[in-house]
């Protein structure tokens, strides 16, 4: 048993042994990491192929890629296209930003009527500080509206008012936006 232990201990992993051995036999004061040492000692030398390979990876100009190949990996092939074709707007309101973030799956319509951040499904980059402020402002505004609607509809409970408001709201939520079902699951709003 002890022999086995010794064996494992002393000879564990040929690669590590190789590297460890190689690392300590540098004849001059040159410090190299053990991986570089291992490579220098035992890897074959193919300078012509390596030079050709490096050169093959280099081009003084852009890479000639077709739209199809770029789209296949989810890249927009036309430089700046989205920004250039974005509609001109008179102003951008919180509601516009919420729609955009819902479309990007970065926000979702919660089952209680509040907006909820959805980091796990978010497509694209968002400024989390901006989103946090937006959510705070929007959800606060929603609470205020529900309160007002409740006051304007005596006899209807808060939950009823909220549910009615949410039904109206869901009708105008962008297609595909995350919407939370009553059981807590999230689904994309279906429009087809």
């Amino acid at each position: 048993m002890i022999r086995v232990a010794f064996h494992r201990f002393a000879w564990a992993g040929m690669a590590l042994a190789l590297a460890a051995t190689g690392c300590i036999t540098i004849p001059s004061v040159v410090v190299v990491d053990r991986k570089t040492a291992l490579e220098s000692m035992v890897a074959g030398e193919y300078p012509a192929q390596e030079a050709a390979s490096t050169r093959d990876g280099m081009s003084p100009g852009p890479t000639a890629l077709s739209r199809g190949t770029l789209l296949a990996v989810g890249a927009e092939s036309r430089a700046g296209f989205d920004g250039l074709t974005e509609p001109w707007t008179v102003f951008t309101t919180d509601a516009d930003v919420v729609d955009e973030l819902l479309g990007q799956r970065c926000l979702g319509e919660g089952r209680d009527g509040a907006l909820i951040e959805r980091r796990d499904t978010c497509l694209g980059r968002v400024d989390s500080a901006v989103v946090a402020t937006l959510l705070q402002r929007q959800n606060r505004a929603r609470e205020q509206v529900w309160r007002w609607l409740g006051q304007a509809s005596p006899g209807r409970g808060e939950a009823e008012v909220r549910a009615a408001w949410r039904a109206t709201r869901l009708a105008e939520v962008p297609c595909g936006a995350p919407v939370q079902a009553a059981d807590g699951r999230w689904e994309g709003k279906a429009c087809d």
């Binding site: 000639a64 890629l65 430089a79």
Partner: peptide, 18 residues
């Protein structure tokens, strides 16, 4: 400068990486 150009980025990323 080539933030929006995937073809340029493809070339630069590879060369700079090499």
């Amino acid at each position: 400068l080539a933030r929006d150009s995937p073809r340029a980025r493809a070339a630069v990323l590879l060369e700079s990486g090499l």
